[in-house]
């Protein structure tokens, strides 16, 4: 379902691993206006880190490429994050989403999508081999008390 966005940020970065911290930090700063708990913020940062790392490691294994991250606040306090790349794409999305499946060797755990799925309310992955991947995640931030 399309929902109206009340606010958003977009940024583009190069697929360098040094940008993982920047991406999760930037989204966390933006999400702060929803007044999340530390735990909610931790979940959001972790999910962004996984999505951006996937793009860096798997979309552009031998090259540097563009990654575009968009974070938006939808009505009802829902944070939607999309991470888009124009890299290699995923052959079999179902398989990639299985726990412990990885093509990244001993350095990766194969738990990225599992963590995105468990830490967010909803995860959508659209990918076309040779064209790129778009990961969309949603998480509702619970309203807290008065003064919001």
């Amino acid at each position: 379902m399309r929902q109206k966005s009340t606010n958003y940020i977009t940024f583009e970065c190069l697929s360098r691993s040094a940008n993982e911290a920047f991406a999760r930090g930037a989204v966390a700063c933006f999400a702060a206006q929803l007044d999340p708990t530390l735990e909610e913020l931790g979940d959001i940062k972790t999910a962004v880190s996984e999505a951006v790392t996937n793009a860096i490691v798997h979309a552009y294994p031998d090259t540097l490429g563009r990654i575009v991250v968009k974070a938006q606040i939808l009505e009802g306090g829902v944070l939607e994050i999309t991470v888009r790349d124009w890299g290699r794409g995923i052959q079999d999305v179902e398989k990639a989403r299985e726990p412990l499946f990885t093509t990244g060797g001993e350095e990766r755990s194969g738990m990225g999508f599992t963590i995105m799925e468990s830490f967010m309310d909803k995860l959508t992955v659209r990918s076309q081999p040779g064209k790129g991947t778009k990961v969309t995640m949603r998480r509702r931030v619970q309203p807290r008390g008065r003064g919001r």
Partner: peptide, 13 residues
Amino acid sequence: TFMDSSGIAVVMR
């Protein structure tokens, strides 16, 4: 202060 699934690979190794 922060850990993602990369930490799982570190622990397993």
